[in-house]
Amino acid sequence: MRPVAALYRRFRWLLHELARFASVGAVAYVVQIATTNLFWAVFDLPSMVGQGLGALISMIVAFIGHRHWTFPHRARTGLHREYTLFFIMNGVGMLIQLLCVWVSVYVLGFDSQLANNISGNFIGVGLGTLFRYWSYKRWVFPEATGTASSGTSDTAEPEDPVHSG
Rank of each mutant, 00 (worst) to 15 (best):
F63R: 00
F122Q: 08
F43E: 05
A115G: 06
L130R: 07
Q51Y: 02
P3T: 09
L18P: 04
F63N: 00
W134R: 06
I123N: 02
L53Y: 12
L98Y: 13
Y83T: 15
A75P: 03
M1R: 07
A22I: 11
H68L: 14
I33M: 04
F131M: 06
I57G: 07
P72L: 10
D154Y: 15
V140K: 01
G109K: 05
F122T: 15
I64C: 01
S104V: 02
F110Y: 15
G126V: 13
D154A: 15
I60Y: 04
D154E: 12
F63I: 01
G124V: 08
R2L: 13
F122V: 15
A6V: 10
Q113L: 14
F11V: 09
I123P: 02
L7I: 12
W139K: 03
F122H: 07
Y106K: 13
T70E: 00
V24Y: 04
S112T: 15
G124W: 07
A41M: 15
L127G: 10
L18E: 03
L56E: 09
G54V: 07
L108Q: 07
G120V: 10
E159K: 12
F86V: 05
G126R: 06
L56P: 09
R67Q: 03
E17K: 01
G78R: 06
W69V: 03
V105P: 01
D44S: 15
R9L: 15
I96K: 00
E82D: 09
A144K: 12
I64V: 14
S47Q: 12
M89R: 03
Y29K: 00
A19D: 04
S104K: 03
S119E: 05
I88R: 03
A41F: 14
R132H: 06
L15A: 13
G25V: 05
A115W: 09
S135N: 01
F141E: 04
G109Q: 05
R10T: 14
W13P: 05
W69E: 04
L79I: 15
A55H: 13
Y29V: 08
S164K: 11
